[in-house]
Amino acid sequence: MLEARLQTGALLKKVLEAIKELITDANFDCSDNGIALQAMDNSHVALVALLLRHDGFEPYRCDRSLALGVNLVSLSKVLRCAGNDDIITLKADDTADVLSLTFENTDNDRISEYELKLMDIDSEHLGIPDTTYEAVVQMSSAEFARICKDLQVLSDSVQIDVTKEGVKFGAKGELGSGAVTLKQNGNVDKEEEATLIELQQNVSLNFSLKYLVNFTKATPLASRVSLSMSSEVPLLVEYKMEAGYIRYYLAPKIGE
């Protein structure tokens, strides 16, 4: 059985907000390592890989690996019934056909209990190969969100150019063009805002802004984001959390 108690229930609410528009149904794979989820969007353009490590929960118990098939829209609706400061406990039996959720307020004088029906999801499990990327950009997650949103005014795609000087996000559309360049600035006072680049080779790739904007729904989960790129390989956008991560993979646009 699974029993996982999360002190900061808001984390789970934010995680659901960050994935529910990309994928509708997914298996939460529970093991002694923690709770993981991996799913592609319907058009096979993007993939979400989520890990909530066991040490992020207190307590965390999972005697036997379990796949909990969840409709993410339903789960996020139920999670809206939890207060932001509530402690959230997830429970499921080995023969689980429901996921039990308990929300306790911080005064421990209001306890709400919900049960969400589970579904059988026959999902193909994909192995994501370890890739050495030609360019890795680490930057402020809020800045990345702003750039994607701003450039969406001009176009539905963005060209990302990475050199050792900096990273340039450019968009061209019917009303004109725009570009935002962030210079590499590792020695700024505010570490949170620094743009850092690890580069093997200059990279220039095109991506759909609609998907990138969707990925930035994870911004409340981490102050930093990393963009890992190589030619003709899916972009990896990673938000690291205290005990886990959300990784998004996005196939590039090809052939200008």
Binding site: P129, A251, K253
Partner: peptide
């Protein structure tokens, strides 16, 4: 204009 690529083929089935 560029066409949107797909992820199929990048990741292996396990």
């Amino acid at each position: 204009t560029a066409t949107q690529g797909r992820l199929d083929g990048f990741f292996t089935m396990t």
